[in-house]
Structure formats: structure tokens, C-alpha cells
Design a protein around this nucleic acid. Structure first.
Lengths: 227, 227, 227, 227
DNA sequence: CATGAATGAGTCTTCATTCAT
DNA sequence: CATGAATGAAGACTCATTCAT
């Protein structure tokens, strides 16, 4: 109990424990979901006494809100930064994807929680979830609104829906990763996946050769119809 | 509700009760999620005695599995049919989207349960969920494998990842609907959304004009790079 | 439903069904005990509709009381008859044993229920059980009171306690049978067991030779001490 | 209840609670039987919160298994010791009776549970019960096997059946006590009952005088017939 | 700070009993 | 008589939260 309190006064302890619990909560949360995540599990996972969880977190909801916010705020901040950094639609979309895939590379567990659990579950903090998810969508949607104004976006597309679709593709791209490898993700595969997500979103999955032929043979390009 | 009140005083009771309970379970499940869905709620929603739920379903888990399977099997069957009907990539992708959006039009609640709750929650039947989701992906992936062989798919894209991305876009397209209107969905909006999902997936969201200009001004088309 | 109602009016049905249910109840009761015996089990065992049990028996308790009484009254009647028939202690004790073992030979299941379950369980009809058991004891005790008056019983023994002890030996003799063979009891073994129960109860298990030697070598007979 | 109130304000809490619950379970179990024993009753009896029962025992079954084992193991141990101590059949039989009656004197409730409830109920741990009961019988049977070899037992008696009969007599002897006085047992009555159980088992209940006369008058002794 | 025993309200599940057909 | 769907009260079990040490 007092072994490590020597050389630095007694500093590292406070924050450590709380962080340990938070990490444990992410772990359990990722595996069992919100309702299935019991305080006892978190305490066991963190190798911490049952009651200690209640020292650092008022109750279960606050704990899971913390799990959520801890990851989400960083994520949203990075997202805004990526959007601000980029000039063109391509840069911005790429930047958003970069943030998401990088977050996944750093901590797949946390991403699973944020993306798969928290952002969906109707039980997680009611308003918070909705707000959180909508916040992301709003950030993305702005990118597409700008792109539409700048003529970069197909004029017949709804920017807000674009935000949903892009985010859906991103999420599923990550899900594909999550379902594939259970351990450390392969950096090469990650990079390739990210590229495909971005490019297919911007330019579609169709082979331009094939699309060109098809167009020549009578059927006008779908895109051209709306030009 | 009024179909059977025609010819008698209290007809058509028997088989209906189970269906009534199932429908009520979908309702509650859609609103509160798996763990938050209490048997008491389902019974109340179905206007049925508590114990009757257990007359028709062994336990809570089986009830929710039934909710899941009931919808999922229809969905998978329709999906396979749509894939079989279509010849080109465009037709098939359009067919898949059609099935999803039509299912949503028919019963937004059920879709919400399938797409947002069951297919994600780790608590719902463990393996079932995984299997179910993978089944969809496999069906979609085959479409893209075929398209790659036929030269319709960009040769540098992974067909399996395409399946994930398309399904992600579809799901988020529906989520956008679900988050927008809580009541009856607007048919026009649905049709437009479906079109955007399909076209953006096949041809991308970029304005071809802009992309063309960009390409002329020095940056080679991303797609062209891989031709 | 009407196939067999032809040739005898419709006679055998009523009593049959009730008896079938009663027999099924004995079966289930013997296996699972009072509280573990569910109406559903009885109905299934009797191959009869759930609700029919309630046609013939007001409720579970009455059903099990019937199981109890059906066997018990016959048993008590036979017991009284055996006691009345016998003149000497030996005859009467032998008669009681005969009744018990014969009942066991006829229907081991029913005996198991009566002896092992009903006569003990505090839940079976409260007073009934106590009364029933005490009735047996009273009948037996009278035998020993008579024997004491007639000088046949050791004068230092309490007649009532003798009744308990004899009944305990009998019951355990039957239990030995019940635990040994699960199917049909072997008549020879039954007869031998009965003889041993009666003789050991009347004359003890000690080898008279050994007891005689022991007495000669200084220790006076236990029995003689009280003569 | 008053032993520990000496030196402080609220001492000796820890390990006691489990024992308190166990004792309460014995109490309720003894009165209501296995199935009739509700956790709520046990908690109330132990003056403990409902949930605490589940803190110490996994479930109802484990609790009642504990009740059973706690008493049974002590009992079996003492029984073995008594058998090992005795040399002659008389000593050993007397020793076994001593253990049983002493246990009853110490805690009639517990004996009731062990003897009357647990050892019979088919619901209590299935195999455990059977095994437990058979264990006792085996221990006793060995005593009679030895006695037969040593010539102390009547040569025409089956040792195993003797074990059953003796145990049956013992049990009913205790039952007689249990049915007679509900409160504290009278030491004198206990001693007398024990003596009668042992002596009647070894030498029979018949008055040797009467038996002797009967033999002289023509009917040969039953025992003599087999000598 | 740290611990884990203690609490009890909330849920699931069972099953005796009723009742419409 | 016969059937089995329908009812709901009773009881086992879980787990978030509190609290004494």
C-alpha cells in the first residue's frame, strides 16, 4: 500500500486509480454493452475494491458517461481540427477518415465502445447519446454543405444525408476491422481500408472504364442526368 | 385492427396472441433496447397477462430471439431474391437498397430493432447476432466479387470491404430516416434517400464537373491512377 | 371421443379417468415429493388434459389428500384387522408386518409415497399427516399395552415407544427394499426380510449363544436386570 | 447471544453472519421443509437483509446443501468414531445410539432437518441425499458384518438389513421425542429412550419370562430354530 | 483513500387456478 | 366431460448503492 509513495511524494496514485477504473470500464463495456456492464465486473477487471468505483464515480451512469465523454471529446476535437485543416472536400473527407482510423489503431476497444455501443444504445444517457451522435453528423454535414456551395459536391445530393452515408461507411469500415482481427490490427490493412473508404465515397465503387462503356452504349450516366 | 371485427363477436383469437406479443416485443425492444425491455412492458403493450408471454415463449431470451429471427429471415430471403433478380452491379445494388428501404417503409420499428439494436448488441443471443450479420455481409460480398470478375468493380477495391461499406451506408441512410421523422416516413423523401445512397455508392459524391476540372489542373484522377 | 361409449353405455370412463389421474399423481408424487409435484406433471403422466385434473379434484391439495387417503385408509383398515385377528404379541406383530410388506408387494410406489413422503412432509395437509401417523402409532401402541398387561412385553419397556421402534424398523425394512431393487421386488427376499424384522424386534439381533456365554462370564443379562 | 457483548460496542460481526444465516436456514427448513423454505423467511429469521443470503450462498440449493453438509459431516465423523471405539456389538450399537441421542439433545432442530427432512426428500441435491443415507447404512452395516463374523449376531440375519432396522428404530425413537416435546427435551426421558432402543434391538421386546414359558409349552423359540 | 459486507428494490420465472370453447 | 389458453400472485435471483471500519 505504501511501496510507491516514496520517491514522488504521493502523486501518481490518485489519477492512476481513476484511469485504471475507466479503462476497465471501457473493456467491460466493449464486451458486454451498457446494461450488461456490472460494477462488479469493472472492479474485478480493474483489480480494485468494489467500493472504490464509487469513490471516483458517483454512480454507474456517471462512470459510463465518463467512459463516453473521455473518448468522445477527444474524438470530436480531433474531428473539428481535421475539418479545419482541410481545404478541399477530398482533404477534409480524408482527414475525417484519418482521425477515425487512427483512433481505432490506438485503441480498438475504445472505438468499439464509442462507435458500436454508446453511439447507438438508447439507454446511454438519453439526450447525451443523441446529442453526441448528432454533433458528429453536424460537423460532417458542414463539410458537405461547404462542398456543395463550392461546387465540389454533386448538386443533387443532400449534404446532411451525405454526412450520414460517409459516417456509415466509416463505421462499417471499422467494423470490418473489428470483426476481422481480434488482436492488434495490421497497419497495412488499415491504410488500405482507409483509402478504399475515402475513394469509394468520393468517386464510387464502379470501374470508370465500365461506367464509360455503359454510358456510350445508350444509357446516360446517372450523374450526368442531374448535371 | 379492423379486418377481423367483421363477422362476429370475438373471432380470430388463437394464433393472434403470439403474434400480438411478438409485435409488442418489437415495439418495446425498439424503444428500450434488449436489456431495458421488460417482460412486464411487453405484456402491458400487448394487453396480455404477464404469464401469457411465458405460455408462448420459453423465456425472455427466446422471445427476443424470435423478434430477431422473425424479421431477419424475411429480410435475408428478400435480399437473396433481389440479388438473384439483378444482372448488373447497378441493378443488384439498387435491388438491395430497395429491399432495405421497402422494409423500412413497411415497418420502421422492426427495422430499427434489427438494424440498430439486435445486429449490434452483444447480449442478443451471442453467436446468432454475429452469424446473422455475417450472413448479410456474405450475400453482399458475393455481389461485389461477381462485379469484380465482370469488370464492373474498380479492380483495386476489396469486394468484402465494399460489402461492409455499402451496408454501412444503407444502415446510416435508414438511421437518418429514423432520426428525422418519428412517425410515418415521407415516401418522397424515402425515394430520394434511396437514390442518393445507391448513386453515391456507385459513382461517388463528388461532382463530376469538379472532379474533371481538378484532374485537368494537374492532379490525376484517383480512379485513373489505378486503371 | 365417442369410440368406446358404445358397448357399455358409457360406464367405465368416469371412474377410469379419475383413477388414472390418481395413479399418475402417486407416480409423480413418489418421484418428486409434494411440493415438487406439479399439476402439469400429473396431467402429462396421466396423458390427460391439464384442465381435466380440476374436474375431478378441487385443487392440488385435494388431489394429494386423495392420494394419501386412498392408500392410507385401506392400510389402516387392514392394520386394525390384523391386530384384531392376532391373539398373542407375536401374532399381532407378525400380522402388522404382514400387512406392511404385502402392501409393498402390491404397490411399492404407493408405499413409498405413504411411508416416505406423506407420513413425514410437514406440508401435506398439516393436521392430516400428524393425525394419520399418530393413528398408526396408536394402533400399534395398543398392541404393546395389551402385551404389557399380558406379561408378554418386557415390563421395563414403554409400550408407546415400542410402537415407534417397531414402526421405524418396519419402515426401514421397506426402505431397504425400495433402495435395493428399483423394479419388481423379489418375493423370497421380501419374505426373508419380513421374518427378520419381526424376529429381531421380538427377540433381538444378538446370538442367544453369545449372549448366554456373556451372561455366564459375569455380566448379568441386560434383560434379567429388569426382570 | 450474550457471549460476545462483553468487551465492546459491536464486536464479532464478520464470520458470524454466515453462521447466523445457516442457523436460521436450519430453523426454517426444519419447520417448513425444503420446498416450503423461502429465502425471505430465512433472511427474516436471521434478521438479515434478503440479499445477504446471496452474499454467502450462491443460491437456495447451495444454502440447503450447506445446512445438510454442516450437520451431516459432524454426524458421520462422530458415528465413525463411536464405531471405532467400541469392541463388542453391544458397545458399538450403544455408541451409535449415544451419538444420535446426544446430537438430538444438543440441537433437536438440526436433527429433525437431517433425519426427517434432508435424508428423505428427493429434492435435496439428488445424489447427495442417497449417498449420505447410504453412507450411514454402510457404517452401521460394517458393525453387523463384524458381529456376524465374531458370532455375536444371530447367524440367520442379514447384516445389512440389520443396519437398516437399527437405524429405523433409532430414527423413530428420535421421532417419538420430536413429536412428544416441542421444547427442551427431558434428559431423563432421553436416557430411558436410548436404553430401550438399544436393549430392544439387541435382545428384543419380548419378556424373557414369557418367551421361556412359551418355549416350554411346546413352541420352540424362534431363535433356537436357527441355532 | 480503500475495502467489501450489507441493503432492498426491481425483474424474471414458475405454477396453481380459472374459464371460454 | 374435455381442452388448453389465459391469469396473476408468489418467490428466486441480481445488482446498483450505501456504509461501517
Amino acid at each position: 500500500m505504501a511501496e510507491e509513495a516514496r520517491d514522488g511524494g504521493a502523486p501518481a496514485k490518485q489519477g492512476d486509480r481513476k484511469a485504471t477504473i475507466l479503462r476497465a470500464a471501457i473493456e467491460v463495456f466493449a464486451t458486454k454493452g451498457y446494461q450488461g456492464c456490472r460494477i462488479a465486473d469493472v472492479a474485478r477487471e480493474a483489480k480494485v475494491a468494489y467500493g472504490l468505483v464509487y469513490h471516483y464515480f458517483k454512480n454507474k451512469d456517471e462512470l459510463l458517461q465518463s467512459v463516453f465523454r473521455a473518448g468522445w471529446e477527444i474524438f470530436v476535437t480531433e474531428l473539428r481540427a481535421a475539418v479545419a485543416r482541410g481545404q478541399t472536400l477530398e482533404e477534409r473527407v480524408g482527414g475525417i477518415a484519418e482521425v477515425c482510423f487512427e483512433a481505432y489503431r490506438r485503441d480498438p476497444r475504445a472505438v468499439r465502445v464509442l462507435v458500436i455501443q454508446v453511439a447507438r444504445s438508447p439507454a446511454v444517457g438519453g439526450r447525451n447519446r443523441q446529442n453526441a451522435f448528432e454533433e458528429i453528423i453536424r460537423i460532417c454535414a458542414q463539410v458537405f454543405v461547404d462542398a456543395k456551395v463550392g461546387g465540389e459536391l454533386r448538386p443533387d445530393f443532400d449534404p446532411s444525408l451525405c454526412a450520414f452515408l460517409f459516417f456509415g461507411a466509416l463505421e462499417m469500415g471499422l467494423t470490418a476491422m473489428l470483426m476481422g482481427g481480434s488482436g492488434e490490427p495490421d497497419p497495412g490493412a488499415l491504410e488500405r481500408a482507409k483509402r478504399q473508404v475515402v475513394e469509394s465515397f468520393l468517386s464510387g465503387v464502379e470501374n470508370p472504364e465500365a461506367a464509360w462503356k455503359r454510358n456510350r452504349s445508350g444509357t446516360r450516366s446517372r450523374a450526368a442526368k442531374h448535371a
